[in-house]
Design a protein around this nucleic acid. Sequence first.
DNA 1: CCGCGCGTCACCCGAAGGGGTGATTTCGGC
DNA 2: GCCGAAATCACCCCTTCGGGTGACGCGCGG
Lengths: 152, 152
Amino acid sequence: MRRHVLLFGLVAGLLIALLQLIEYRWLVLAHSFEIYGALIAAIFAAVGIWLGLRLTTPKVVVQETVVVQEVVVEAPREFVRDARQVEALGLTPRELEILEFIAAGLSTREIAERAHVSENTVKTHSSRVLDKLGARRRTQAVERGKALRLIP
Amino acid sequence: MRRHVLLFGLVAGLLIALLQLIEYRWLVLAHSFEIYGALIAAIFAAVGIWLGLRLTTPKVVVQETVVVQEVVVEAPREFVRDARQVEALGLTPRELEILEFIAAGLSTREIAERAHVSENTVKTHSSRVLDKLGARRRTQAVERGKALRLIP
DNA sequence: CCGCGCGTCACCCGAAGGGGTGATTTCGGC
DNA sequence: GCCGAAATCACCCCTTCGGGTGACGCGCGG
């Protein structure tokens, strides 16, 4: 980021110098003022657009035959649960919790241990989750949960 | 996109007009020329950056109380399977295929239909997948498969 | 040619998951 | 104080899943 600012400053300086040069050589004419202004405007706008794109576009780096692509980390992709989906589906906090455990690949027994409840309770919750998600299997529930942004 | 170009043209025109006005009113001084140029440069660079960002930043649209957010499709996040992991685990193409079906939430029967093989075959494959991934359940296999970049 | 990896299919058995129903408790709101 | 939502637990029944084993055909490489 700082690199970009420095780069921009450098480019700007060079451009100004260049324009000054051009001005003194060929544009010392009547109305050169307007042309000069338009020229500056156009060039800097272009540079600005380029810079704006640079700031948000991924970069591709080639490293020892391995292509590494810098991904735009739009705020480290911190997971944010889609509250509207949750509400629309009527999922309770506990049910979401069990869904997360399921997505982690835990068995009913393991979930029961971690959630400090009986296996029957876990089964009840998971049944409700499957029902509310319209899923017939845990794997399907997980798939839908991820698609609906209910779980990471 | 075309909208942006038009918008930019309009803004540019207004700015030029504004600057002309300012120039005639207060900047008819010695050396106003450089100031004027710098001003144009700065403003248009800013506009350019803003425009550049606008072109690549997600947009939020409010529709009948429903907020729809355009998500930046970062090069559709093309999935690239980690071939080294596949080799390290000794997973065959068919097994990976079945793993994908499992991740999609399909049952053994459904997978058998889509893969045009018997349920028994699917069970054999899925058993091998679970074995090779060190998983005890399908959900766990999916979780590990994703973690190891074997499946999207 | 023979072995090996892969894909295919079968059968069995026990474990796990899923569907349905009913019941109790707890807690916050009306 | 009653109601409803949420959470808890139980039991039954059936399906699915997972583990184990065995077998067959095909193609490739030694």
